[in-house]
Computed example of a mutant assay.
Amino acid sequence: MNTRPLRIEVVDDQMAEVLRGKTPAERVAMIGSANRTARVLAEAGVRHHHPDWQESQIREEVIKRVCRGPS
C-alpha cells in the first residue's frame, strides 16, 4: 500500500497557454519525449550508483523507478 501523500502539480498559466496551442498528437508526442527523458536519466543514475550491475538489473531498477518512484 502506498502511504506517501498525493502530490498534485499545477501547470502555470504560460505553460497552459502553450499546451492549448498544441494538437492532441503534439501533446502525446511531448509526453512520449518526457517519458524517454525520464528513462534515460533514471538509467544514468542507476549506472552511476551501481557500476557493477548487469544490464538486466539496471533495466529492472529503471522500470521500478519510472513506474513506482524511488524506493
Rank of each mutant, 00 (worst) to 15 (best):
N2I: 06
N2L: 07
T3I: 12
T3R: 13
R4C: 07
R7E: 10
I8E: 13
V10M: 13
V10Y: 08
V11K: 06
V11T: 02
Q14T: 13
Q14W: 12
Q14P: 01
M15I: 07
A16T: 10
E17G: 03
L19N: 03
R20T: 06
R20V: 00
G21S: 12
G21M: 04
K22N: 04
T23F: 13
T23D: 09
P24W: 11
A25T: 07
E26L: 01
R27K: 09
V28H: 09
M30Q: 06
A34H: 06
N35H: 11
N35F: 06
R36K: 14
A38F: 05
A38S: 06
R39L: 02
R39V: 00
R39Y: 02
A42P: 09
A42Y: 11
E43G: 03
G45M: 13
R47C: 06
H48V: 03
H48M: 11
P51H: 08
P51C: 01
P51R: 10
D52P: 00
W53L: 01
S56E: 15
S56M: 09
S56H: 14
S56I: 05
I58S: 02
R59F: 02
R59Q: 07
R59Y: 05
E60K: 11
E61P: 04
I63W: 12
K64E: 12
R65Q: 14
V66S: 03
V66M: 09
V66C: 05
C67E: 15
R68A: 10
R68G: 03
G69F: 11
G69M: 07
P70Y: 15
S71A: 15
